[in-house]
Each structure stands twice: as structure tokens, then as C-alpha cells.
């Protein structure tokens, strides 16, 4: 019989207690056990970056972690970025205003990666942005809209912080 453990994970402020198989990937736990399907899975070997989430504020590939490793930790996923149902976060708004997404499949990983990056680098250069998202694959945009969105968001977030 598969080994099972009881875990408790906080995602976007809500606590999820579940008994899971020890081999269950964190990405599958988030998507299929907690039904937060905004986090996407594109390769399951840690390269495409679509499944990137924030674990205690640090980016992590949820396809390269087991759910049991997240026991007791706090996660942020794409569903938890906007301040409320009707409003977008400045980063999300910047993606919309700069055509930073087409199919939207890589978007959850782009947003979480950039949230962390812009928090730590509020005034980045274009090249720094490109390097920051170099571990996230997008086949649609050629990255241009994403890079523009990140730079635009940095400006908006700086303005917000200054206000």
C-alpha cells in the first residue's frame, strides 16, 4: 500500500488539510486535491516553469516538490495575487496592458516569478527582467509583451510604494 501522510498547507491564506500519498507531487496536490487549477503543469521536469508558486515567499517549481514537503508552509498561487474578485494586481494589470499573455498557460509561472523578482528588484533593467524569467518558457509571445509588462509593473509598484 502506498504510504500516506496527513498534511496541512496554507494556500492563499486558506488552510487545506488532506491525507495524501507521500509520492503526490505538490503541483497535483494544488490542482487536483485543493482544486486550485490556475497553477499549470507543462513539463513535470522543472524546466518550463508554468507550475512555479511561491513557497514562504520564495519561488519553487511545484512539479519538483512533493506535497508532503509543503506541510506547514504557506503557498501563494495565481489565484491569490489579485487583491479581490474585481480588481487586478498591478502586475496582472500590466500583463493585460502590454499583451503579456496569449494562451495564458505559462502565465501563472510568469506572474509568481515576477512577483518575487520585482519585490527584490524594484527597478530592474530589461536585461535583468529577461534573466529573471529565463527559467519560464513561453511559446506564444516571444517574451516581448511579458518583458514590457514586467517593466511597466515595476514602475507601477514603485509609484504605489512611493505614494
Amino acid at each position: 500500500m502506498a504510504d500516506r501522510r496527513r498534511i496541512s498547507v496554507t494556500i492563499n491564506g486558506d488552510t487545506y488539510e488532506r491525507e495524501v500519498e507521500t509520492r503526490l507531487l505538490l503541483s497535483d496536490f494544488i490542482r487536483h486535491e485543493c482544486e486550485l487549477t490556475g497553477t499549470h503543469v507543462g513539463c513535470e521536469h522543472g524546466v518550463c516553469g508554468a507550475c512555479t508558486i511561491l513557497l514562504d515567499g520564495i519561488t519553487a517549481r511545484s512539479c519538483l516538490m512533493l506535497a508532503v514537503q509543503a506541510d506547514g508552509h504557506e503557498l501563494l498561487t495565481i489565484e491569490g495575487i489579485a487583491p479581490n474578485e474585481d480588481e487586478l494586481h498591478p502586475l496582472q494589470q500590466a500583463f493585460m496592458d502590454n499583451h503579456g499573455l496569449q494562451c495564458g498557460y505559462c502565465t501563472p509561472g510568469m506572474l509568481t516569478t515576477l512577483l518575487e523578482f520585482l519585490r527584490d528588484n524594484p527597478d530592474p533593467t530589461e536585461q535583468e527582467v529577461r534573466i529573471a524569467i529565463s527559467g519560464n518558457l513561453c511559446r506564444c509571445t516571444g517574451y516581448q509583451g511579458i518583458v514590457d509588462a514586467a517593466l511597466d509593473a515595476a514602475g507601477r509598484l514603485r509609484a504605489e510604494a512611493g505614494a
Partner: peptide, 21 residues
Amino acid sequence: VRRMEDPELLTGRATFTDDIH
């Protein structure tokens, strides 16, 4: 015109095939 598709995709509410349970 800004894309009307975007808000659902940017907030994780859009439904892809694997999101169907």
C-alpha cells in the same frame, strides 16, 4: 483594444481541459 480574455487567465479562473474534474 485590450484583450477581454485576459482577466480570467490572469487570475487562474480560466478552464483548461485538465482543470475539469
